[in-house]
């Protein structure tokens, strides 16, 4: 255990969040991402039709969604904790994890549009209409919009207790909607996105059952690295808000 010499006044406030200020996992995140970039660009990848060299996007685009999931799961856990104890601190945690999660989701969506533009549209003679019908895209957009509404909802309250309470309930709803919209429905209906039934896109990868071991070697460390980076950004925001609202938290 580390001692806290200089924290006389804020000791009770920051004691619990001491893990946030440990450094080893931040350095781990840096090392994993350095490995992701070096290994991701230089190591051998399977030669796949249509995808060609773009399969390396797996180390970046997919990791954004994985990171988003971890952040949203953390967020909903803090929302539930808030509803159990009504401790304002939990609301700060929940909202900031959701914020960074949404940010990762937007990054995942943007990178997905770029990737799809070069692998779905041109090579397979897909028209824009086909792309717009994509259940994966629609589902992901719905999920992100639901989380967007979470922040609109938060911003519309002036009373912090009311805001915390209503948005915690809404966060649980948003999290529950996440699963049908991005995980279940795209797997029920045909989609161009790898991993769905009827995705005759001609590439065997990304079906996690038979994803190539060469890809796994970089993919798993990449997921951990990007996720840790997301958690780090969240903790910085949380620590800032804990400091900003210290009077409310003390009172």
């Amino acid at each position: 255990m580390r001692t806290l010499p200089a924290y006389h006044n804020f000791a009770p406030l920051f004691e619990k969040s001491i893990a946030l200020r440990k450094h080893w996992w931040k350095i781990l995140s840096l090392l994993l991402l350095i490995y992701t970039i070096i290994g991701g660009f230089l190591l051998d990848v399977p030669r796949l039709f249509i995808l060609n060299e773009t399969i390396r996007n797996l180390y970046f685009h997919v990791c954004m969604w994985m990171g988003m999931m971890v952040l949203f799961i953390t967020s909903v856990i803090y929302s539930i904790r808030y509803l159990l104890k009504f401790n304002y601190r939990e609301d700060i945690y929940a909202s900031n994890f959701a914020a960074v999660g949404t940010f990762f989701g937007i990054l995942g969506y943007l990178t997905g549009t770029i990737w799809a533009n070069y692998t779905w549209v041109t090579d397979q003679h897909q028209s824009l209409a086909n792309i717009l019908k994509e259940p994966k895209l629609i589902g992901a957009a719905i999920a992100l919009l639901i989380y967007g509404a979470y922040f609109v909802l938060r911003a519309s309250f002036t009373d912090i207790d009311k805001r915390a309470r209503v948005s915690a309930v809404y966060n649980i709803f948003a999290f529950a909607m996440l699963f049908p919209s991005i995980w279940i429905i795209p797997r029920l209906v045909g989609s161009l996105h790898p991993g769905s039934p009827g995705s005759d896109s001609g590439n065997p990868a990304l079906n996690f059952n038979d994803i190539d071991s060469r890809l796994r070697m970089v993919f798993y460390p990449a997921v951990i690295g990007w996720t840790l980076l997301g958690v780090w950004i969240s903790t910085l925001r949380i620590r800032f808000e804990l400091y900003r609202d210290k009077n409310v938290l003390h009172g």
Binding site: A6, Y7, H8, N9, F10, F14, R21, K26, L30, L33, I34, I37, I38, F41, L42, L229, W232, I233, L236, R239, F240, Y243
Partner: peptide, 29 residues
């Protein structure tokens, strides 16, 4: 790889900088 690593290292240096800054604020009485 060199370009991407430079960006990554720059971003992380910035992250550590912000982290230190917040730590200082927290310690400040």
């Amino acid at each position: 790889v060199a370009v991407c690593l430079t960006i990554l290292l720059g971003l992380f240096a910035y992250m550590f900088y912000i982290d230190r800054k917040i730590s200082k604020i927290e310690k400040h009485k």
